[in-house]
Design a protein around this nucleic acid. Sequence first.
RNA 1: GGAGGCGUACCCAAGUGGUUGAAGGGGUCGGUCUUGAAAACCGAUAGAGGGUGCAAGCCCUGCCAGAGUUCGAAUCUCUGCGCCUCCGCCA
Length: 426
Amino acid sequence: MIDAKLIETRPDYVKEALAKKGWDFEPEGLLALFVKRRELLKEVESNKAEQNRLSKSVPQVKKEGGDVQALFAKVKELAALNKDKEVELDQVEKDIQAQIEVLPNMPDDDLLAGGKENNTPIYHFGEEPKFEGFTPKDHVELAESLGLIDYKRAAKISGSGTWVYTNLGARLEWALLNYFITTHLNDGYEMILPPHILNEQSGFTAGQFPKFREDVFWLEGQEPKKFILPTAETALVNLHRDEVLSEEDLPKRYFAYTPCYRKEAGSYRTEERGMIRGYQFDKVEMVQYTTDDGSDKAFDELVRKAQALLEGLGLCYQLNKLAAGDCSHSMARTYDIEVFIPSMKIYKEVSSVSNARDYQARRGMIRYKDKDGKMHFCHTLNGSGLATSRVFPALLEQNQQADGSVIIPEVLRPFMGGLSVLKPIK
RNA sequence: GGAGGCGUACCCAAGUGGUUGAAGGGGUCGGUCUUGAAAACCGAUAGAGGGUGCAAGCCCUGCCAGAGUUCGAAUCUCUGCGCCUCCGCCA
């Protein structure tokens, strides 16, 4: 959530920043509400102060045998006078809240305005494989011929947009996750396994609601409402909601493995074959809580970590600095790490690293006390480290050989019983 | 799912309608004592959000959350949430 004070004192600055995200923000309405709010607040509070003063004097007046009834009448009168104003104030505050909470985060100053077309690749790793002397298969064919994924049976037991990892496919998926987890542990991150069913407030704090209410799976008949997490970020950034941390505990570095559940309504299912986009995919997610001046450093750290994971696998990827309009709704800054998918001849996101600055912290009252006892909002950051559903196909496609086999990256072998190559079963 | 209990400041806890911003204890910080430490003793410290003001300050909110009763609520009523205990069911 954007700071209301900032909107009030520098409306043009906020307007300009949001414009870079393609968001047309007209502050006039809010500014008028701020004025209205202040007016009402002054009236209501001074009236309330008078009521309190009179009420407090009751025991004294009683003792002196004064006219208590007259006092009662006076206070009642004041209270009646205040009632309408209190209702009005309440409404104004709700209106302000409603208007501010839908606003996206403001992008960092250095980001280009506009959408995808203005994303800037800033680093490239590895070489796009050449496949000399044979026609490469796509990952769907490979997964099938190697016996890794069963799409047919997935459709039978679940539906389209899903898959079953079978045999060595399941082993490979698990090896990837283990490789990620082991790396994060070695880097000193704390492992978390959160519940997958979360309450509405968690979605709000993460900034997924109200905007993305339609994109998650809601549990039927649950009161209060519950949804299944679309990413472990939702759980991790809510861990310290409504808490006051102390500066020496920061930064907090967490990671969690969870499947992610998304409706993906209206997505490009047809061109994205196989496991490029599904209703459920596995992801290891990293989250940091930092001080309000520590998030830039943390951001670089998370980007580096995500890069290192792909580099460990030896996969060709690019690092993409997103333009303001392509950054996530709640984020001030996002870098995507995109792995090369030969069959599609494009780079597909496997990790999205973002700095929310204090946007989520304000929504969830996540604060810390500095060494002088002063309160601050934390900064929160998140980054995939990594999502498997695109690493898996990229790995198959990039590492395929002329004979249809696929070389397993060395870092994964310890998690696959030393196996070094996947061979076709038919 | 059924029955009961609880929710007060960093922690424990008193408080059941009136100057209660909230007793007491622990903790923390400072001091006395001590070669040093412990103990003992003395002192300090009670969160947060908001309004107003140059500031000191003053004011509003605030004892899980919300609504209500009352001139006045931590204290009474209702609702919700959370936790605990017992019973049932169950991976």
